[in-house]
Design a protein around this nucleic acid. Structure first.
Lengths: 111, 111
DNA sequence: TTTTGGTACTTTGTCTTGCAAGGTATTGTT
DNA sequence: AACAATACCTTGCAAGACAAAGTACCAAAA
């Protein structure tokens, strides 16, 4: 059964490829915890939900791109603050290049 | 000099979100058959293999974005020429917008 | 003190999709 | 007939996005 393709689906599809890139971009600027990352991405029109972000952060941590520390919250449970590692910054360098190339490639195909 | 594995993974990841977009962009310019599409994308640095492209073309056809006709080949078996439909062009419009927004979003996150 | 509401992190199951590998089919050449 | 080149298609696996449900912590209200 083919699903009806909506505008949202198109955007969702395109977001997938750059999600990890966005996380590293954000964390390169400042440490953050999952819920705050979701809000920042939402503000930038890059919708992500918990079920996507948490496993993604764990994957990036397991790859050595991120590390985390626990911090008390003014209200509620403690927060897991993620920060980017040296390896993460190198990966981000690669991603910057890759992103630039993709953008160029699309431009080329468009002519 | 060979690029390391992770670099290739990063590029592959980012390509995923825009593959369908690239197909429609190409077919909006001229009809093409699968093997030629693979070559055109390869020239544009957007590597795709048969096992990816054939199911993708079938999906897009089932969604009404593409149609096809058989044409004799000067050498070898007949070719399945795909062309974009009206619905496909409308979808392409959406994708152009979506792509523009993603590019803008990334720029925003960078700053 | 129990309940409630807000915040935060985690896991499970499903669905889609990319891809390697192998298969089928047609045509021209040896 | 055998082979090479071209072209299309399928299968099985793996990764990942997401909805939904679960766990846990804290503070203020009942």
């Amino acid at each position: 059964m083919e699903k009806n393709v909506t505008t949202e689906n198109v955007r969702a599809q395109m977001r997938k490829g750059v999600l990890e890139y966005c996380i590293l971009l954000l964390l390169a600027k400042e440490d953050a915890y999952a819920s705050s990352i979701i809000n920042k991405l939402k503000e930038a029109n890059m919708i992500v939900v918990e079920g996507t972000l948490y496993p993604l952060l764990i994957r990036q941590k397991n790859q050595g791109l991120l590390q985390y520390r626990w911090e008390e919250s003014p209200q509620g449970p403690p927060r897991k603050y993620y920060s980017i590692t040296q390896k993460g910054r190198e990966q981000l360098e690669e991603m910057n290049n890759a992103w630039g190339e993709i953008v160029t490639t699309i431009e080329n195909i468009k002519n």
